[in-house]
Nucleic acid binder design. Sequence first.
DNA 1: CACTCGTGGTA
DNA 2: TTACCAAGAGT
Length: 388
Amino acid sequence: MTSPLHPPPPALGAASNASFADADFSATVIAWQRAHGRHALPWQNTRDAYLVWLSEIMLQQTQVAAVLDYYARFLARFPTLRTLAEAPVEDVMAQWSGLGYYTRARNLHKCAQRVLAEYDGVFPSDPLLLAELPGIGRSTAAAIAAFSGGVRAAILDGNVKRVFARVFGIAAYPGEKKVEQALWLRAEALLPQQGIESYTQGLMDLGATLCTRSSPDCQRCPLQPRCVAYATHRVKDLPVRKPKKTNPEKHATMLVIIDRGQVLLQQRPATGIWGGLLSLPELDGHMPLDGDGVPQPDHAAIALAAGRFGEVESQQRLLPITHVFTHYKLHIVPCRIALARRLDLAGEAGHVWQDGAGIGQAPLPAPVKKLLLELFGDAAAAQTRMAF
DNA sequence: CACTCGTGGTA
DNA sequence: TTACCAAGAGT
């Protein structure tokens, strides 16, 4: 049986780790980074662990272009670790609204509070200690330690996995435990003795700018002479794709209950999709299926659900929205409901009336915020822009 | 360990 | 349009 790794991994143990050592590899990456890498990103050219940490959390599974605006706005609102730790979590969620993976925002807040309480507001420099903090895993801990403290520690993010898979010709799915373990061994063994910051940034930059998933620029790559995938014409086939599975489709009816320029919002549970965000109340219970098997709530069911909040004056089905997640597709049928008389919300825990003008600042999921901004017109959108 | 968790860009 | 997936972590 042949190993998917190239060259075949030796027996486990410290000695096998050392067998991957290759000073020329790191020297090549470092030289390339200093000449052609990125040096002007907002979170670079600093050793402030707060600035580095925030960027690393935002950049988890999120591309640089999507982070830039959020990073600037977040720091304008929370310029220091203390301001973040002492802020209400709702404010943190509002700043994160639209960026996705909202557990990151809750863990960010928790982490700030723990660093303040346990480390007097100063991040530890040891990656093992960093990795014990909420939201910081092994790779993120290494990146923070390397960039903010010059600590020699290995990262293993999507960029590194892709570069390694190609350069070393690793023809196995990197998400598989055994393969990932082997990748960590290489990552540790290839670390340079000097210049950990340039090396770490260089791996990220190579993956992000040259060794991209699609249409990589091998002609400009400093690792091309030693790239197994390039030599064997397998660049397009590596890294091995994740085994695909068919994603389910889900349906939700959202109630857009409007009264006197306000819309009714409901706090979502802390866990699960859009955890901890505000959103529109959803219609639960069984709904009759139409010809395509799509649940279609009838007017009576909608009126019954909305009746908890007031006397329904009118209701109107809005255009359906399809929102695609990584692992399923959600079909939203929004239903606009006008109230003739509003009941008080005592006994309706987690519900709140939101001014139309404040929608842009509310901690809402992206599709819900988009829908409401359209419904409430340019006034709410203008208010959003003014706030920044 | 397999699964969950957002959003926007790309082909 | 559909499918894929990017500076991963938590469960």
